[in-house]
């Protein structure tokens, strides 16, 4: 039971980060290395707002959302200043551009917050664990799982049921045609990017209490999100949800039953999926470059 709960929580956290990554990849065709940087910015901003103390839950939730929104604003600025210029360049050049942004964000965090780890307390009412079926589950896990479920449902509604979602789908499918049909491609890009970075910031802000914050989390945490995007299929949000949960659960199972394999869960899962389905669980073949 505890394995299940831990796995689910881990998976949801990874999903929050990976969903933003895959959204930006699917719509804008940019592999955004700097996503991990925004994850870290979200974690630090939430820490700054909460001052590391335990707060009542509603204050915590409110300030986490404020921190995520602030991260999205930073993202929006970088979209204006940097990504605008990258769209015109080939994919691999833009990949390096986002890597440069990752270096700048991580270096900037080192300059502002230093290298010493800081920690953020959980909200005061969620500090303790509760007992389910004889297992101790941290209460804070509920908040993370709830955020993950809300995000998944929210993205689903946004993409399938709203005007913006239809525009987003159109731009992802064929941005040139969408532009001809009167969709403001630039605005869709900016909004998509802001949304993706909001999710990165949310993931960071929520992950804050579960890890010790150093600027380095920008490069470590992103790897799992990358793997989830590969496993789930490039640009597929549903795929990344499945992949993230599978990864979280596998992590958790291996950590308790086969600790020596635990760090490899990512690669085991990835190898298994790629051998059977090179385009990922729910991915399209086009983005894999199958024909040359």
């Amino acid at each position: 039971m505890i394995i299940l709960a831990t796995g689910l929580t881990d998976g949801m956290l990874i999903f929050l980060v990976a969903s933003g990554l895959t959204l930006v990849l699917g719509v804008m065709r940019v592999v955004n290395f700097s996503h991990g940087g925004f994850f870290m910015i979200g974690a630090y901003l939430a820490y700054e707002l909460l001052r590391g103390h335990a707060q009542p839950i509603w204050v915590f939730v409110l300030l986490v959302i404020v921190a995520s929104a602030a991260t999205a604003v930073v993202g929006l600025v970088s979209e204006r200043v940097l990504f605008r210029r990258l769209y015109k360049l080939p994919e691999v050049t833009s990949l390096l551009g986002t890597y440069a942004l990752l270096l700048i964000l991580e270096g900037g965090a080192q300059l502002i917050w230093g290298q010493n780890p800081v920690t953020q307390a959980e909200p005061s009412s969620l500090v303790h664990a509760f007992t389910v079926a004889g297992a101790q589950v941290p209460r804070y896990d509920i908040l993370i799982v709830a955020a993950g479920v809300l995000t998944a449902a929210g993205l689903q509604v946004l993409i399938k049921r709203t005007e913006f979602g239809r525009q987003l789908t159109a731009v992802a499918e064929d941005r040139f045609m969408a532009g001809l049909l009167g969709v403001n491609v630039n605005r869709v890009f900016a909004a998509t990017f802001a949304l993706g970075i909001f999710l990165a910031g949310l993931g960071g802000a929520l992950a804050g209490p579960t890890l010790s914050m150093v600027p380095d989390i920008a490069v470590t945490f992103i790897l799992q999100a990358f793997a989830v995007v590969i496993i789930g299929g490039f640009g597929s949000i549903g795929g990344s949800l499945i992949a993230a949960l599978a990864l979280g659960l596998l992590n958790s199972f291996l950590a308790s039953d086969a600790p020596s394999l635990a760090d490899f869960s990512l690669y085991i899962l990835m190898a298994a999926v790629l051998i059977v389905r090179p385009q990922g669980l729910l991915g399209s073949r086009q983005l894999v470059g199958e024909d040359l």
Binding site: T93, Y99, L101, I104, G107, G108, L111
Partner: peptide, 19 residues
């Protein structure tokens, strides 16, 4: 203490201005 910051800026400048 933070050479990453400057390397990042250098990389951006090279990519955008001196490809």
């Amino acid at each position: 203490t933070s050479y990453l910051f400057y390397i990042g800026i250098l990389l951006l400048v090279v990519l955008l201005l001196l490809p």
